[in-house]
Write a protein that binds this DNA or RNA. Structure first.
Lengths: 136, 136
DNA sequence: ATGCATCCCGTAGCAGGTACGGGTTCAAGG
DNA sequence: CCTTGAACCCGTACCTGCTACGGGATGCAT
C-alpha cells in the first residue's frame, strides 16, 4: 500500500495530478489509512500509469476516460479502442505535418538573416509583409 | 478605418481574440469612432496580422510580445529575433520527434489488434502492462 | 419601423494541470 | 523527549490562450 507520493513517483506524475484525477472522477477515491491518508494498491497505481501513458500518447482526458471505461468492459470494446487509436494517429500525423510546415517557415526566415546584406531585420520584415501567409 | 469585425476578418482571427489582445496589452487600444466603436487603421491590422503569424508559428504570447517590441526597436534586435526563432525551431523539432514516437507506438498497438489470435484487447493490455514505457 | 447584424462591456468557462496557504502527522536526529 | 522537516490533508486561486455568454446600444437594410 503506497502513499500518494510513492504512487505519483511510480506513475511518473505529481501528487497534485493524482488528486486532480480523483477530483474530476477519472480515478476513484482510494481507501484511506487510519490517519486519513490515501492508500494506493497495485491496481490503483496501474490505473494511474495507464492514464499517464494514454496522456503521453496525446489522448485528451475525455478520451482517456473512455479508454478507462472500455478497459474494464471487455467484449467488443477492442474495436472501439482501435478506432479511437486510429483517430489519434490521424491527429498526430496532422500535427506533425503542421509542425513540418512551421519548421520550414522558421528555417527560411532564419536563412534570410544569414543572407549577405539587408536593412533592418528580414525576419520581422517578412512577418510584417502584407502578403505573408502562414498556414499552419 | 476598419471596424473590429473587419479587422478580425483581415487578420484571420475572431473579434474576441482582438479584444483579448487589447485587454492583455499585447496591442494598444485603437482610437474610437464617435459612436464608441474601435477603429483600426492599416498599421493596427498589420500588427494584429503579425501577431497571428507568430502565433501560427508556435510562439507563445510572451514571445510574441517580445517580438513585437523588438519589431519596433530596430538596431541589434535582429540577433535576438534570430535566437528566439532558433529556439523555436529546436522546440518544433522536439515536438515532431515526440509525435513521431507517439505515432510509432500507436501504430504498433493498432497492428497488434490485427494480429491473428488474442484474448481481450491487446492495446488495453499493453497500456496496462507493468513494463510499458512511453517516453514522449 | 422593424428586424437583424454588429458592436460595446464584463465576467465565466474550457483543458489540464500547477501553485499556494494553512493545518496535521510522521520519522529521524539531537 | 522534543523538535525539525518532509510528506500528507484540504480548498482555492492561478496559468495559457482563447471562447462563450448575457444584456444593452447602435447601424443598416427593407
Amino acid at each position: 500500500m503506497a502513499t500518494i507520493g510513492i504512487a505519483a513517483k511510480r506513475a511518473g506524475c505529481s501528487v497534485e495530478t493524482i488528486r486532480y484525477y480523483e477530483r474530476i472522477g477519472l480515478v476513484s477515491a482510494p481507501p484511506r489509512a487510519r490517519n486519513g491518508r490515501r492508500s494506493y494498491g497495485e491496481d490503483e497505481v496501474r490505473q494511474i500509469k495507464f492514464i499517464r501513458r494514454c496522456r503521453n500518447l496525446g489522448f485528451s482526458l475525455k478520451e482517456v476516460a473512455t479508454l478507462v471505461s472500455l478497459s474494464t468492459t471487455g467484449g467488443e470494446a477492442c474495436a472501439r479502442v482501435k478506432s479511437i487509436a486510429a483517430a489519434q494517429v490521424r491527429s498526430v500525423r496532422e500535427k506533425m505535418a503542421d509542425l513540418a510546415r512551421v519548421e520550414e517557415w522558421l528555417a527560411q526566415m532564419i536563412a534570410q538573416c544569414d543572407a549577405p546584406r539587408h536593412e533592418g531585420c528580414p525576419m520581422i520584415d517578412t512577418l510584417f509583409a502584407a502578403e505573408t501567409q502562414i498556414t499552419a
